[in-house]
Design a protein around this nucleic acid. Structure first.
Length: 296
DNA sequence: GTAGCACCTCACTG
DNA sequence: ACAGTGAGGTGCT
């Protein structure tokens, strides 16, 4: 199916959206992108203002790529200074993507202390071992495992998927989700701070992972995850918004204490406003792309 | 309340 | 080559 994006006045750039680091399950072959989303294999490419896609109806695609987000309005709201303005202008059409909360939870537990290529590998191994096989264009793809499959897995099997110390956390989190002790739908309508507190009860879920889940899968666009790269952005570009001693303290160490994290995150939420999460996405992608080549 | 450190494994660096 | 380094942090002391 073809979709004319201009006609619907939907700024969208497939390439930067799929490369920005939020997603771990898309691969490019020739000039088509292939990705497994829920129980589908989606094939898509963009030429100028035409988005071609197969494997899902328009409604699914539009929901996934958040076409209903009014991007011009959002960018207008977050443009508080020249740096964020430049970041947003460098990647026009970059959008957040609406992920499945369960997949997002496990993916970001796995993302702890790993780089993006390694995270992709772990997720693919998990899917191959515990997911369902789908065949498209004579190639095999695997769905992300259901909660039950990971809940009944053994730590050893999980470790064979290269999870390392994350294996135990993934199994425990899976058991909690599988036994319905966590209601994602309810979290969507729960106030941000309360929802985050609930998520951080899970093993392997600290502030950062919780904020990723809230932003990428639970529609909390005000969430502002602070990772290593965002910490660097703050140190280098937003230091004047903090006490000198604070910047000095966080610069001396690699990881942030809970309080330091909250200080940075709530600054950004106040500064960028209700769409702080979009600001995070642009800052993260822009700063990384400046620092070195994008992983692929 | 903060500080320090271990943690699995991988990709990239020199 | 191959050891060293740091990675979309969290949990424990």
């Amino acid at each position: 199916m073809d979709l004319e994006l201009d006609k619907h006045s939907i700024p969208f750039d497939l390439e930067s959206t799929l490369r920005c680091g939020q997603l771990f399950r898309w691969e490019k072959q020739d000039d088509w992108w292939y990705g497994v989303v829920e129980d589908r294999v989606i094939r898509t490419r963009q030429k100028n203002h035409i988005l071609e896609f197969e494997g899902a109806p328009y409604k699914f695609i539009s929901h996934y790529f958040r076409f209903q987000d009014n991007l011009p309005k959002i960018i207008n709201k977050i443009q508080r200074d020249p740096f964020i303005t430049l970041a947003a202008q460098t990647f026009p059409g970059l959008r957040l993507v609406r992920q499945d909360p369960w997949e997002c939870l496990i993916s970001y537990i796995c993302a702890t202390y790993k780089n993006i290529p390694a995270i992709k590998k772990m997720i693919n191994e998990l899917s191959k071992r515990f997911g369902d096989q789908l065949t498209v264009d004579n190639q095999n793809y695997y769905t992300f495992p259901k909660p039950k499959e990971l809940a009944k897995s053994t730590i050893n099997e999980l470790r064979m998927c290269k999870l390392g110390f994350r294996a135990k956390r993934v199994k425990q989190a899976a058991m909690i989700v599988d036994s319905n002790q966590l209601d994602f739908e309810k979290l969507k309508i729960t106030e941000y701070k309360k929802a985050r507190n609930e998520l951080t009860q899970l093993p392997g879920v600290g502030n950062k992972v919780a904020d990723c889940i809230l932003l990428f899968s639970l529609d909390k666009l005000e969430a502002f995850p602070v990772d290593l790269w965002i910490k660097r952005v703050i140190q280098q570009k937003y230091a004047n918004h903090f006490e000198r001693s604070f910047i000095k303290t966080i610069s001396a160490r690699k990881s942030l204490s809970q309080n330091e994290y909250d200080k940075i995150s709530s600054f950004a939420q106040n500064y960028f406003g209700e769409y702080a999460g979009y600001a995070q996405e642009y800052l993260f992608h822009f700063f990384r792309s400046q620092a070195h080549r994008i992983d692929e």
